Simulated scan of single mutants.
Amino acid sequence: MSVTIKDVAKLAKVAPSTVSRVIANNPRISEKTKNRVREAMESLGYHPNYNARSLANRSTQSIGLVMPSSVDKVFQNPFFPEVIRGISTKAHEEDFAIYMSTGQSEQESLEGVERMLHGGRVDGVIILYSSIDDKIMSFLQEEKFPFSVIGKPYNNVNQITHVDNDNVQAGKDVTDYLIQLGHKRIAYVCGSLDSVVSMDRKLGYKKALQDANISYQEEYILKEELLNDGGIKEISRLMSLQSPPTALIVKDDLLSFSIMGTIDKMGYSIPKDLSLVSFNNLMLSEFTRPPLTTVDIDIFNLGYHAADCLLNLIKNPGQEAKQVIVPHRLVERQTGQRI
């Protein structure tokens, strides 16, 4: 088994990121720490790849993709193949290859990115998500390495190149749509609030309620992680409230498919008993029964523009950060009903 940065870090009693910085000869690392790490590397027979660093002006013609740490679930969600299709289309136009980094945890993903950078495997990186306090984003900023993000960063928004929808407005739009249909009791499956997109859409939801003089009720908020086995327990709780919701907003189409099946098994009918609106407009959305009303976020162009922005950063070092907003639109089908 080959020796890894993690093995070196353990022997030297430092973080893996410190080993990466020693390999890069980062001036912030003390000579004492550098010597300890180098001794550990020598003891274990660890040999970093210095090829790309010795060819400083040579491009690898490759870009790295960083997936969410829950990689086992990534390709179950059609969002990711479609966004990667957008990225690869632009990369192909510019004769760039794609190098994918995955991990089962945030730490594993970070270590993979460190190896990708310090092994000289890529010219830039695209992060396919945005979360609060993301270590990979912080690492790339510290290294001053070209990267772009699909999603809005939680911090330093104007200093980081990113591509996103206006998710506050998207959250408001779907809520306004249901309010215009006469709904006042609107529940929301918002996803993890560690995700910036979920936070922004929830803000839009609350703003629409406020503008319509409808009180916000915490009991109408469902967290995605509670919806195991289709969310029978949580949906049952929701529908058993003294004033149950007449409409439901769901964070994405994939989860909506599961919830629609659960609601049907419970004996309720969509949209007769409960209207439902979602996000993403996946290909299967128009084939559900009834066809799903959803927000088209233009997934392909999120990926295409993220790759375009990154390639511009690679070609033009020192270029100011760029923010691209991809328009969204509500696709009205048959899961919303006037009351």
Rank of each mutant, 00 (worst) to 15 (best):
residue 324 V to A: 13
residue 264 D to T: 15
residue 54 S to L: 15
residue 314 I to T: 13
residue 262 T to G: 04
residue 249 I to Q: 04
residue 90 K to S: 09
residue 147 F to N: 00
residue 291 P to N: 04
residue 148 S to K: 01
residue 205 Y to H: 06
residue 299 I to C: 03
residue 7 D to W: 06
residue 47 H to D: 08
residue 292 L to Q: 01
residue 129 Y to R: 01
residue 27 P to R: 01
residue 322 K to G: 05
residue 285 S to N: 03
residue 126 I to N: 00
residue 216 Y to C: 04
residue 68 P to W: 05
residue 29 I to M: 01
residue 235 I to N: 01
residue 198 S to K: 03
residue 141 Q to F: 05
residue 134 D to W: 00
residue 113 V to R: 00
residue 73 K to R: 09
residue 63 I to A: 03
residue 282 L to K: 01
residue 221 I to S: 02
residue 11 L to W: 11
residue 215 S to F: 08
residue 150 I to D: 00
residue 18 T to N: 11
residue 253 D to E: 10
residue 304 Y to P: 01
residue 116 M to D: 03
residue 248 L to H: 07
residue 279 F to W: 04
residue 167 N to H: 13
residue 226 L to Q: 12
residue 302 L to Q: 13
residue 184 K to I: 08
residue 275 S to M: 12
residue 202 K to Q: 14
residue 30 S to I: 09
residue 148 S to T: 15
residue 29 I to P: 00
residue 36 R to Q: 14
residue 82 E to Q: 13
residue 67 M to A: 07
residue 110 L to C: 05
residue 260 M to C: 07
residue 267 G to S: 11
residue 42 E to K: 11
residue 114 E to W: 09
residue 34 K to Q: 14
residue 59 S to R: 15
residue 115 R to T: 11
residue 74 V to A: 01
residue 234 E to F: 05
residue 97 A to Y: 14
residue 53 R to D: 04
residue 336 G to V: 14
residue 268 Y to N: 11
residue 256 S to G: 07
residue 280 N to Y: 06
residue 337 Q to S: 10
residue 208 A to E: 08
residue 137 M to Y: 02
residue 118 H to W: 09
residue 181 L to F: 10
residue 176 D to T: 15
residue 10 K to R: 13
residue 166 D to W: 05
residue 133 D to T: 06
residue 299 I to P: 00
residue 242 Q to R: 13
residue 245 P to R: 02
residue 54 S to R: 14
residue 333 R to W: 06
residue 248 L to V: 10
residue 210 Q to C: 06
residue 148 S to F: 02
residue 281 N to M: 04
residue 56 A to R: 14
residue 61 Q to G: 08
residue 186 I to M: 04
residue 27 P to L: 01
residue 233 K to W: 10
residue 159 Q to G: 10
residue 146 P to G: 02
residue 25 N to C: 02
residue 120 G to V: 10
residue 182 G to R: 06
residue 263 I to E: 02
residue 149 V to W: 00
residue 325 I to S: 13
residue 163 V to R: 01
residue 298 D to R: 05
residue 17 S to I: 15
residue 262 T to N: 06
residue 31 E to T: 08
residue 306 A to Q: 03
residue 258 S to H: 09
residue 324 V to K: 14
residue 13 K to F: 09
residue 91 A to N: 10
residue 336 G to S: 14
residue 307 A to G: 06
residue 240 S to Y: 06
residue 333 R to P: 02
residue 93 E to W: 07
residue 105 S to V: 05
residue 117 L to I: 15
residue 65 L to R: 00
residue 313 L to W: 07
residue 219 E to M: 09
residue 203 L to F: 11
residue 19 V to H: 04
residue 32 K to W: 07
residue 224 E to Y: 07
residue 91 A to H: 10
residue 9 A to K: 03
residue 226 L to S: 15
residue 268 Y to A: 12
